[in-house]
């Protein structure tokens, strides 16, 4: 069988690194969609819909056999945390995460050229240590939080803030690798 042409419909270099680490050959073509939640949309429905829409948007303009879309949110005490709007917002998020646990939910979709799609959402619980104001300010000064859901990256400067996790580590980074690879296998992509 000829090798499938796989396209990652995400601008996240972290997702690309994860897929590369699994030995998958693919191209990156970021999807551009309206990410506004629908009225009363539950968090899991939201990430799954965005994942599917990202994959579908790219499939309409790029030739490929399989398109992977993904969306990650941080859910803390009822608040869905996306990317912070500014440094003050990042500080607010980190103060809220401090000392308690939150959920990181990634929805992913694999869309085949024939229109077949499979979606799944994976949830990981992340336990933060109690952060000092200095730790929060130093981390924000690195600039790292600004393009991350929940204002932190577990694989970057925030690694020392995470006391422990329950569930998939790669899911917190942005792509539940174990599950995504299994779905690609099941769809005959790899």
């Amino acid at each position: 069988m000829p090798e499938s042409r796989i396209i990652l419909a995400s601008a996240s270099p972290r997702r690309a690194e994860l897929l590369e680490s699994a030995g998958i050959r693919f191209q990156v073509v970021p999807g551009h969609i309206d990410e506004t939640p629908l009225p009363a949309e539950p968090p899991v429905d939201h990430v799954l819909r965005l994942a599917a829409e990202k994959a579908a948007e790219v499939s309409r303009r790029e030739a490929g056999d399989f398109f992977i879309g993904a969306d990650t949110i941080v859910l803390c005490s009822g608040e869905i945390m996306g990317k912070p709007t500014d440094a003050a917002d990042a500080a607010r998020m980190l103060r809220k995460l401090s000392g308690i646990s939150h959920a990181v939910i990634t929805g992913y979709a694999v869309l085949a050229g024939n229109g077949a799609i499979r979606t799944a959402a994976v949830e990981t619980r992340v336990f933060f240590k109690t952060l000092t104001e200095r730790e929060i300010n130093d981390y924000i000064a690195t600039g790292c939080p600004m393009d991350k859901a929940g204002a932190y990256a577990i694989q970057g400067g925030a690694a020392h803030m995470v006391a422990r996790i329950e569930g998939s580590y790669t899911n917190v980074v942005g792509l539940p690798l174990c599950e995504v690879i299994e779905t690609l296998r099941e769809m005959g992509a790899i």
Binding site: N114, G115, A116, I117, R118
Partner: peptide, 29 residues
């Protein structure tokens, strides 16, 4: 499935005859 313009995850939930499986192979999740 051939006509839909949005991404849809299809599940087959009805009684399925073996001779029709070929038509939905790879299409349903």
């Amino acid at each position: 499935a051939a006509a839909v313009s949005v991404p849809v995850e299809w599940h087959f939930i009805g009684h399925l005859q073996s001779n029709k499986v070929r038509q939905i192979a790879g299409l349903v999740a």
